[in-house]
């Protein structure tokens, strides 16, 4: 049985970008699936299962990336990964909690 390659465009929304923790989350999530997932930036391809590979993206906030998956569970793999990107790697709530008291100090 052959599987077609599926593609999804995602955006890095968290302010800190893909630093170590997000890279770890992406790699862990990608590792849960049999599908091979790659992150494509410009013409370069990066292995979504490798933290080292993901860190070389140096993807800051606002960066658009393509996720490409190939394999039996490619669709759920991309769903799970796209969800992580959309949630800002769970950093958005923490960022707004930190922002409010800090903003208060400025006044």
């Amino acid at each position: 049985m052959t599987h077609s390659r599926i593609n999804r465009v995602v955006t890095v929304v968290n302010p800190l970008g893909i630093h170590l923790r997000p890279a770890g989350l992406i790699a862990n999530t990608a590792n849960r699936f049999a599908a091979q997932v790659e992150v494509v930036k410009g013409g370069d391809r990066f292995d979504a299962r490798s933290v080292l590979s993901l860190l070389t993206l140096a993807a800051g906030q606002g960066t658009q990336l393509a996720l490409q998956a190939h394999g039996p569970d490619a669709e759920p793999a991309l769903d799970a990964l796209a969800e992580l990107f959309a949630q800002g790697f769970h950093e958005m709530e923490a960022a707004s909690e930190r922002a409010s008291p800090a903003a208060g100090l400025d006044h």
Binding site: V51, L52, L55, L57, A58
Partner: peptide
């Protein structure tokens, strides 16, 4: 300076591969 942190991680991880 989150950008600089990302760039340092990039330099390190690129070489470590």
């Amino acid at each position: 300076r989150p950008r600089d942190h990302l760039l340092a991680l990039e330099s390190i991880s690129r070489q470590l591969r």
